[in-house]
Amino acid sequence: MYDVVIIGGGPAGVAAGVYVARKKMKSALVADSFGGQSLVSADVQNWVGTKSVSGFELGKMLEEHLRAYESDIDIKIDLAVKVEKKKDGFAVTTKSGETLETKTVLILTGSSRRKLNVPGEKELDGKGVVYCSTCDAPLFHKKTAAVIGGGNAGLEAVLDLLPYATKIYLLEYSDALKGDAVTQEKIRADKKVTIIFKAKTTKILGDKFVTGLQYEDMNAGKTVELKLEGVFVEIGAIPNADFVKGLVGFNKFGEIIADPKTQQTSQPGIWAAGDVSDVLYKQNNISAGDAIKAVLNISDFINKESSTGGYTK
């Protein structure tokens, strides 16, 4: 039985992995890739100690750092699909069918992209509906595209499209953009970009490929149709926590509630940190720090258990 199973391979997962390995705790880490959400970033400039690094390189650096401790931690390239409470701990089941028994679990699974949930979105995913703008923006050379969402991710998608698309619509649900002022200025200065406020996307049109988009103009109370070939969805993230539903406490955003001092969840023996938790700021450096905080608290928990013959709260 493991002392701790860490789930996640982003900055939080790797930070936790390095710490548990150095503490010689009997540990495993389950992750299907390394790097987390920054993996698709063209340039990360705020990872402390590194002036500039691509998300891909950052992922490699993290994996290398973790693998330096390979003899002290079992690294499973896999996906956790279920965590179950057992009599004396937990069982973590993976996609490949492996079951890991452990005294404690540290959940560091981050979040993934929120979907629009409108007709046409699923059917036309990869056929003009795009969730990775840095990947696919070049495919919209001489085409018209819409970006949904006026936060930083949406503004960056517009920037990714600018060298390629002939026309870009930026649709924002509220009446103001939320992204960085510098990026906003750049976008507003470009004649190719039309910003539409109070726009609620209702339908993505197309048969084989996207041919248009329908939105509700909430100011005028009418439905508008745009002819275009691409829809870039950039409307935030949802926590990756389905596999522990019913086991830990959640807030209304679907984030796991974690004590900010220790990262403990409502379920004794389970800790959570990073974007999957209800941390106020979603940042690589914060996730790494909070994950380490969790490891230190887990270490205290394990030591206390072994010295007293049982943990009582």
């Binding site: 890739s33 993996l39 698709v40 063209a42 691509s54 998300g55 891909f56 990775c132 840095t134 990947c135 696919d136 923006a137 070049p138 495919l139 050379h141 990714d160 390629y164």
Partner: peptide, 27 residues
């Protein structure tokens, strides 16, 4: 495309396994 991370991961996978491939930059 040159900016696509998943493309890089795929190419990394081929290289690590000594598999030859042809690449086209569709950008």
């Amino acid at each position: 495309t040159p900016t696509c991370v998943y493309c890089k991961m795929a190419k990394d996978f081929f290289q690590k396994n000594n598999i030859q491939y042809k690449e086209f930059n569709v950008a």
